[in-house]
Design a protein around this nucleic acid. Sequence first.
DNA 1: ATCCGTCATTCTTTCGAAAATAATCTCTTG
DNA 2: CAAGAGATTATTTTCGAAAGAATGACGGAT
Lengths: 256, 256
Amino acid sequence: MFSVVPLENEGELGSMASVAGDRRIVGEGADEPATLGEAAYQRLRADIVAGALEAGKPLRLEALRHRYGLSYSPLREALMRLQSERLVLSTALRGFSVAPLSRKEMKDVTETRILIECEALRRSMRDGDDDWEASIVAAFHALSLQAERQSRLSGNMEAADMLAMEQRHHQFHRALIAHCGSPRLLELADQLHVETQRYRLPSLVGRVARTSPRDVSAEHQQIMDATLRRSEDATRYLAEHYRRTAEIVDVSIAWP
Amino acid sequence: MFSVVPLENEGELGSMASVAGDRRIVGEGADEPATLGEAAYQRLRADIVAGALEAGKPLRLEALRHRYGLSYSPLREALMRLQSERLVLSTALRGFSVAPLSRKEMKDVTETRILIECEALRRSMRDGDDDWEASIVAAFHALSLQAERQSRLSGNMEAADMLAMEQRHHQFHRALIAHCGSPRLLELADQLHVETQRYRLPSLVGRVARTSPRDVSAEHQQIMDATLRRSEDATRYLAEHYRRTAEIVDVSIAWP
DNA sequence: ATCCGTCATTCTTTCGAAAATAATCTCTTG
DNA sequence: CAAGAGATTATTTTCGAAAGAATGACGGAT
């Protein structure tokens, strides 16, 4: 059922979609997409974020059709959506291409993300209740456990571990801002998160990124503590956290 | 070539797309869309914003097909895009519908817009040059002229005038933030602007909105002056401006 | 009457062939 | 040898028929 034809560039990561396994309690969970268009969207998105579809390269319909075993319609729909999310570019009658990466773009995404998330964090701190605090602590703990395991098995950082780590990380950051009360802000944060992933993931898969003696856990701890005591410091730490990451990615990527 | 079938509800505004006439200097300008999908997107968007496609109502493909004289593919692509922009909702195998309007939504859009535009204004004030200032003054002047004309011909506020006014208004606000240096922020502002239009336009077309003795021009003047002297007041006035508008729309709409 | 299947109907989604357009190549001609 | 017209190929875009899913209606059993 999975015939992933390698589409021009050799996909060193393959299709990393469908992170969650097949556990399903009732009819709930990260269920598989009901429609082929949705599936196309998810797989394309995952492949772009993971770098399996190289930035800047054109996306030929025929190639995609073979790669994913789908017809034009669902593919075009997915590409249309991805275009709105800035992961794909398209020119009128000349088709689609993977949106290119650039220093400038990364800077813009990072700063916009800081703007959005700091505001969301501020509102969450203003209105957050006990459950909100609890979910932050929980997410932090889960993240710590994963990081612990990771550092013990250091050396062979596999793609699967990477993804697990990445998910915990995302969940922690989302927990922080979850109580902001604005669906729009949360959606924006998610979207910007995906875009930053494009920059972080590929630069981490190969090397173990031990270039800088950075204690990410400590930074998270700091953000959480400040958040729980509802201090405006939290937003400062958060901004710093994101800027530092961007800085490291910046120097570790071979820009085009 | 134009057979606009009225699709269930009687479109009292018809398709208000293609604001700019047919002037075209070289090959430039607000040219017509190169592809049917793009055309579908623009017309659907215009019709939703103007209220010609009623909020909450389902969008049956067959009806759209007749209304716009297009086939499924371009329509679905357009709807997919509009979904990403929150103008259209869709459920897996149950098709599309016009995104509903709600007090809560409007509040959220307004506040998010304030967040984005105030930041963009701040950055513009920090980095703006002489050309930037000049374009603001120009946009303000054009807006004033239009408002002048409008108030003289008061009483019969036609849809065309409404649109012209709306455009000048938008151009003024865009000029303020144009020099922020972040494409993303500008795009977000545009998107949020479209969403707020949905709330303002329908509530203005029928009545002349003389419910409140509001001097909008004065507010614009105030914002511009503060901006030109690079005062932080500008962002406060801007926020107030948007909140006041939201307030007025709120009381003048018969919420569902 | 209420609940549960079954069937018909309506609507969405998908497919791949056909049309339209861009890109590339060939063959002139100045 | 460059430049341009014309033909050829590659690719995107559009179409409408066909497949697939949801909704509603009907009828029988509880």
